[in-house]
């Protein structure tokens, strides 16, 4: 019986992906997981604004060390996020192909009445984010952009993530890249978060007005939070003590 159930589960998933709605559901669920990750990533990183404690170990470094101490679990999370990301991009590509095929001859004039700017440029913002994620990983996770900053350690041998971030964002090109990327992120979330509810069938008439405000609110909050960090560091408002 257990085998039969497992088989059905895979069968249901496979059957779902045969349908445009199934691909949209994949898009929504994978998107939701990344919204969750991006939001907690932003909140956690806001620790960069906390003052340096007397012992010289910044809260951001403690947080980073705690994450590193997860070991194998951290890699499980990373691989999970990667798989989810790839699935999101796959759904986007497949749906785009199907959508383009659905209108082989385009209109000479097409006038939109209610489409938002963000919803019209999801592919543009999505592509921008794809490249930004690669740059971001190269920058802070793999240290390929600034190896000296990446190699910083505290006297106790602890990895100096705080110092790496401060030094990293003193570079106007790096800070500017993050700021621009987060405008794209805010735009992407502006449409995405409300859209998730509609695709999952949760946007009922009663809650529609609230749900339609949620996307813009989350986009603004995450974008503003993420932009505040490189901007404050670039302007020298944070991390003056780091050399």
């Amino acid at each position: 019986m257990a085998t039969a159930t497992a088989g059905t589960g895979a069968g249901v998933f496979g059957a779902l992906l045969q349908r445009t709605i199934g691909l949209k559901l994949l898009m929504a669920v994978t998107g939701l997981i990344w919204v969750g990750f991006v939001a907690q990533h932003m909140v956690a990183n806001l620790q960069v604004f906390m003052p340096m404690p007397a012992d010289g170990v910044h809260p951001l470094n403690r947080y980073a060390a705690a994450l590193q101490s997860l070991g194998g679990l951290l890699w499980v999370a990373r691989i999970f996020l990667l798989v989810v990301f790839v699935a999101h991009v796959y759904a986007a590509i497949r749906l785009t192909q199907l959508n383009r095929a659905a209108r082989p001859v385009d209109y000479r004039v097409r006038t939109t009445q209610v489409s938002t700017f963000s919803s019209s440029y999801m592919r543009v913002s999505g592509f921008a984010l794809l490249f930004f994620v690669l740059y971001h990983l190269a920058h802070f996770t793999f240290g390929a952009v600034d190896q000296a900053a990446y190699a910083r350690t505290l006297p106790g041998g602890m990895h100096d993530v705080y110092g790496m971030v401060i030094v990293g964002f003193r570079n106007p090109i790096a800070a500017g890249t993050y700021i621009v990327a987060n405008v794209f992120l805010a735009l992407h979330l502006h449409h995405a978060v409300s859209s998730i509810f509609q695709t999952l069938g949760l946007r009922t008439p009663r809650y529609a007005p609230l749900i339609d405000k949620l996307g813009p609110a989350v986009g603004l909050a995450v974008g503003a939070g993420n932009i505040a960090m490189p901007l404050a560091i670039l302007l020298g408002l944070v991390g003056q003590g780091v050399s």
Partner: peptide, 29 residues
């Protein structure tokens, strides 16, 4: 061969009977 829904709601705005996209959420559910 119809395309998929991108939740822009142009359909609702164009519908001569002003049918709500709540129908689409219900269908998805």
């Amino acid at each position: 061969g119809f395309g998929s829904c991108t939740n822009q709601y142009e359909c609702e705005a164009a519908c001569p009977k002003e049918i709500s996209v709540s129908a689409i959420a219900r269908m998805n559910r």
